[in-house]
Amino acid sequence: MEATLLDPRMFRIVAAAMALAAFVGLNALVLVYLERKIAGHVQRRPGPFEVGPHGLLQPLADALKLIGKQLFRPAGADALLFWMAPVVSFIPVLPLFLPIPFDPDLVAMHVEPGLLLILAFTGINVLALCMAGWGSNNKWSLLGASRAVAQSVAYEIPLLMALLAVTFMHGSLNLSEIVEAQGAWPWQWNAFIQPVAFIVYFTCAVAETNRAPFDLPEAESELTAGFHTEYSGMGFGLFFLAEYANMIVVCAVATALFLGGWQGPFFSGWWWFLAKTYALLMVIIWFRWTYPRVRFDQLLNINWKWLLPLSMVNLMVTALVMKLF
C-alpha cells in the first residue's frame, strides 16, 4: 500500500482533483450568469445588469449570499439523511471528470472503461435526491423525490442503449480512443453517423439532469421546489452546484462521443472541446426557456413508448450494418 501511496502519479492526481474542483466551481458561476442572461434576452429584458459591468459580478454576489444564509433543518426531519443528502449529491461529481479527455494529454487519468466509470457514478445522484426527499419529512420533497427516482431510472435505459450503439462501432469504452477514431470535420463525427443515437442521448441527458422541460422533480409551480424545498443556504447551494456539474459532464460526454471531442477544423485542442461543450450547454438552457414542462405521465411514456424502442432498433441496425460493411 505504501508503494502506491508514494506513486509518482499521486501528486498529479491530487493536482488534477483540485483543478477540476476549481473548474466545477468556476463553471457554476459562468453557467448561472449565462442562464440568467439568456433567460433575460429570451424574454426581451436585459437580465442581471446592476452588479458589475453587465451584471458580471451577479453570480459572485449570489454565491456570497448563499454562504451567508442560516442553515435550517425542519423540526420533523431526519437529521442524518437531511444533512448527508447535499454532500452525497456533490461527492460523485468529481470522479465523473476523471476520464474526460479535454485534450490528448489534458485528461486526469486514462481509464480503459472510462464511460463505464461515468455511468456508474452518475447513478449515485438519484440516491441523494431520494435521501433529501425522505429526510425532509415534507410532502413536496417526498413527491419530488419519488418523481426523481422514476424519471432517472426510466431515462437511464435509452441513454445506455444510445451510448452502446456508438461504443459498438468502436469496440471500446475509452473516451480518448473514441475521440481519436473520429475526424476533424463535422461529417466525420459520430453525430452524423449515428444521428438517432445522438438525439436519444441528448434528450435523455436533459431528463437525467432534471432540466426543463423534464424538470418535474423540482417543478416550482407544482411542488414549490421539489426535493430541495426545505434546504436553505449552502444546503441548496450544493444541490445546485451538483446539478450544474452534472450538466457539464453530460455535455462533455456528448462532445467526446458524438461531436469529435478536441478535434476540429484547422486547429485541434482543448478549446474545441470547451467550445462544443458550451454550445451544448447553451442548447440545454435554450430548451428551458422555450418548451413548457411536460406532464408526468407524458414524461414516462415518451421514454418507454418512443425513446426506448427507437434506441433498441438503432442498436440492432448498428450491429447489422457493422456486419454488412
Binding site: 491530487v14 451567508g68 454532500v87 470522479p95 481509464v111
Partner: peptide
Amino acid sequence: LSDYLFVLVFLLVGLVFAIAPVLLAAIIT
C-alpha cells in the same frame, strides 16, 4: 490498485469541497 486509489482521492477531494462551504456557512451565519 493505484487506479482505485486515484478514484478514492477524487472522492475525498469532492468530500472536502462539499463540506468546506457548509462548515463555513455554519460558522458565520
